[in-house]
Simulated assay, not measured.
Amino acid sequence: MSESSRAGHGRGVGLGLAIVSAIAFGGSGVAAKPLIEAGLAPLHVVWLRVAGAALVMLPLAVRHRALLRTRPALLAGFGLLGVAGVQAFYFASISRIPVGVALLVEYLAPALVLGWVRFVQRRPVTPAAALGVVLAVGGLASVVEVWAGLRFDALGLLLALGAACCQVGYFVLSDQGSDSGEGAPDPLGVIAYGLLVGAAVLTVVSRPWNMDWSLLAGSTDMNGTPVAAFLLLSWIVLVATVIAYVTGVVSVRRLSPQVAGVVACLEAVIATVLAWFLLGERLAAPQIVGGVVVLAGAFIAQSSAPARTSLEPVASGGPEREPSARENAV
């Protein structure tokens, strides 16, 4: 297989992982809503999600404990921004502004990533990438029906913007060290320690000792169907968090932060579609059209990235990736 073919295959794998990550993240709300309606506070659900995932990833944290010495700033930043920050700012924002508005502001992150690449890293951004971001954000506004119940709340919008900035940190930090070849930090180790840091921060914020733990032993209602609360929590922990973060971080290293950020906009589309089928929340025509526009924007953005040129393994025990000179500006 030629280098260009291998690079194209690597980018295809990265795109596939990014889509899997968006699907996994998108399913979190559908599983969390019945738990919240059963009586769990939203922040308690977030804490259970992150703390449970941290326990699952704990063996990997032990295996990659050398990261504590070599990459302490990366681990702390990923946990504070990519895990705790996104969750805390988002849930704080939806307490003051409509969910659709908060979600739209949070997913301004792809545009902010392009700004980071262009003005901080001083790398070029192609018109196609910018067009992809515009289409994705515009389509997302239609998917979440941002015009429904729109009201201005300065603090709420600032909190949602904080979630967007933290999401930028998630994409940028996920890509850290991807040029280092064999010395690159293993993504699984970074995720494991990021979840541990995030769980510690969210413990202080959510105060889980005030939670009604008995609710987890009962059942919840999902559009008229009784579902065990423990099963929903298991889905949130294993699929919507562990699998979502693992596939998401690996996809960023294969695609670049800016491309993966635009593909991540599919999360809102997937969440809306899953809510339609599983929770009975009907889709209007503008939402369907908006979903198509988001898909078009994501396709334009990812197809504008040049192919990688080589394939090498990450750190020991990590998934294969293709380092380059990071000239794959969108």
Rank of each mutant, 00 (worst) to 15 (best):
V99I: 02
G177C: 13
L215N: 02
A148H: 09
G181E: 14
G138D: 04
D221K: 03
E267G: 09
V292I: 14
L135G: 08
R254A: 07
A329K: 03
D221P: 13
T272I: 07
M57F: 15
G39Y: 07
S303E: 09
V105P: 05
I270H: 11
S174W: 00
L311K: 04
A53F: 12
Y170P: 15
V120S: 09
V242L: 02
V330I: 09
A160N: 06
L266P: 11
V46T: 13
V204L: 13
S28E: 00
L231G: 03
A307Y: 10
I288V: 15
T309N: 06
L161V: 14
A240Y: 01
G261P: 13
P34M: 07
Y193L: 02
R122Q: 12
G14M: 05
Q87E: 12
E37R: 13
A240C: 15
A41I: 00
L238F: 05
S206R: 01
A163R: 01
T126F: 07
L58Y: 12
R321Y: 12
V144I: 08
G8N: 11
V45G: 00
L17D: 06
A192N: 06
D186W: 06
A66G: 12
G183L: 13
D153G: 05
I94F: 13
L55D: 06
P319M: 11
A76W: 04
P208C: 08
D186H: 14
S180A: 15
A129P: 02
S180D: 15
V205D: 02
C165F: 15
D179W: 15
V172Y: 00
F78G: 08
A32D: 05
A298V: 08
P319I: 03
R49A: 05
G218H: 02
E281V: 03
G82N: 01
A244W: 02
V204M: 08
H44V: 09
G39N: 06
Q302G: 09
A18F: 02
S95D: 13
A61G: 12
V99D: 12
W276H: 11
V50P: 11
R49K: 07
G14S: 04
T241S: 14
V293M: 07
A88C: 02
S28R: 04
F277T: 13
A305G: 12
Y193S: 04
A92P: 01
L35M: 10
I288Y: 10
L278W: 08
G290V: 06
A73Y: 00
S4Q: 13
E145F: 00
L173V: 14
F230V: 14
V289N: 06
